[in-house]
Measured scan of single mutants.
Amino acid sequence: DHDVVPEDKFQETLHLKEKEGCPQAFHALLSWLLTQDSTAILDFWRVLFKDYNLERYGRLQPILDSFPKDVDLSQPRKGRKPPAVPKALVPPPRLPTKRKASEEARAAAPAALTPRGTASPGSQLKAKPPKKPESSAEQQRLPLGNGIQTMSASVQRAVAMSSGDVPGARGAVEGILIQQVFESGGSKKCIQVGGEFYTPSKFEDSGSGKNKARSSSGPKPLVRAKGAQGAAPGGGEARLGQQGSVPAPLALPSDPQLHQKNEDECAVCRDGGELICCDGCPRAFHLACLSPPLREIPSGTWRCSSCLQATVQEVQPRAEEPRPQEPPVETPLPPGLRSAGEEVRGPPGEPLAGMDTTLVYKHLPAPPSAAPLPGLDSSALHPLLCVGPEGQQNLAPGARCGVCGDGTDVLRCTHCAAAFHWRCHFPAGTSRPGTGLRCRSCSGDVTPAPVEGVLAPSPARLAPGPAKDDTASHEPALHRDDLESLLSEHTFDGILQWAIQSMARPAAPFPS
């Protein structure tokens, strides 16, 4: 592969990997390779389809078979030569091979799209000592099968071997295949498990690692696999990028399955594409389908809103127990993405979901129960707010008499603000006073009005108090039968009158 990737590009890729991570280095090298001529790309395919690569990765054979028959990708048995050289000459001794072996032994695996480039050397060096003999053996194999790289107009793939297949390693990572398949204008990513390549439709969760975000852009890794992070704060999961590491605690105790298979379609829109997988259930989501939507993949363990709600429900009964003089119970939860139609709101002032922060849900004790107040519409209280300059209440639009249902020339009671006709409430011909108009209920007259088809109010509507207090003497005590009587009149003013009279009014101040 030294004929494909020059030394300066190799060093530039290593520097970019240390600065921005393996995914960015892979993407940059792939983009550079696509700008080369067809001879360089053909050399790339020839390096990929060597015999030892085909033996190690069985899924490469179907890719090789898909090439046109007129494309010669065979390799000479006596060494490598550029395709432009007409004579089959043995190339001179390859010093770059020693360079590659020494550099890969030092860096474990470079971040390139060629056999030198995919593992994360920093994480491997940190986690190597417990498994040094086995990992050293794996390093000797890295130059042979560490990076199976493929690129063409139909298929483009980048393979990364790992030393996680050490025997006896619980939940060992089998390997990473960062794979971009450009077929019919689409893009897919796969993962390699035990020599087999699994596409998103049959993606397997190998051991402790999972394909957290099938994305090839942005600074985030394709698999949430930063070796420096180790395990999740809650004892979460091992990262795919942690090559040759000792077994780590796999999943939280509440995880239903340690080796679950995540779905390959969004649980909201039932469509495929780039998904984020939940650590607590097999569901996966688009970032845009979450509520609120996320802009980037959160670091650490992530769970959907259903799993978060289940966790909150487990903690909430203990938080609601009476604990005198104790601060509110704080339950730190990872930043969760909410699927459509589901929402768990945190306290005000918290950062938005999706940031690399930890939301704190506070379970406050329930407030003391209070008697429910009568629910009145805002339009129902409008007549009470229509007060004239002299303190006389004006008529609201649409006000109707509670007896006849007519809204023409209605009066407004100064005591309960109900609309009424003087002739309907006082049919006996009582003279109307000039000021202080009161309806039949507030004036103490319980004589029913002779209106055909309208039920008369119940005599129990009024329960006047002592006459010594004029204001308190007109406080009506309405009961269920009074409400039914008012409802039978089918008037809004009657219902409003009952609601206003049912509310307690402050006692009249004593004259000074």
Rank of each mutant, 00 (worst) to 15 (best):
C404D: 05
H425G: 08
L364D: 07
P397Q: 10
R283I: 13
C304S: 14
P509S: 11
L287K: 09
V268P: 06
C424G: 02
P372C: 15
T358S: 09
S245D: 08
T331G: 03
V315H: 14
S441K: 04
A467P: 08
P322N: 11
S306M: 02
T358W: 15
E489A: 01
V315C: 07
L496P: 00
D470G: 08
P293D: 04
G436K: 05
Q313A: 09
G391S: 13
L308Q: 11
Q260N: 07
Y361Q: 00
R432D: 05
K362H: 05
C289I: 03
T311Q: 12
C281R: 08
L352C: 14
I297Q: 05
G465I: 08
D409A: 07
R412L: 10
P335H: 12
S379K: 08
W302Q: 12
S431E: 14
P466H: 12
A370N: 11
K362W: 03
S369C: 11
C439E: 03
Q501P: 02
Q325W: 13
R400K: 10
L373P: 09
Q501K: 08
P450S: 07
P433S: 11
V268D: 06
T301V: 09
P348R: 13
L486T: 03
I276V: 12
L411H: 12
T301G: 13
Q260L: 11
A353I: 04
H382C: 05
T491Q: 02
C281Y: 06
V403E: 04
D445S: 07
V315M: 04
I297F: 08
A449Y: 14
S339K: 15
T301S: 09
P256F: 09
G436Q: 07
E326T: 09
T357S: 07
P367C: 09
Q316M: 08
K468R: 11
P459W: 06
L381F: 14
S443L: 07
P374Q: 13
W422F: 14
G349L: 06
P372G: 03
L384G: 06
D469V: 09
A499C: 00
Q242R: 10
E343G: 07
L287I: 06
C289K: 13
L308H: 10
C281I: 11
D482M: 01
D264H: 08
P365W: 15
A267R: 12
C307N: 15
G405C: 13
T301P: 08
T331K: 06
D445Q: 08
C386A: 06
Q316C: 11
C281H: 07
A460V: 11
D255Q: 09
D445G: 08
P324L: 13
E452I: 11
G346W: 13
P427C: 00
E321T: 10
F492Y: 03
Q260A: 06
V410I: 09
P324F: 13
C404M: 01
A380Q: 10
T358A: 11
P372V: 13
A460Y: 12
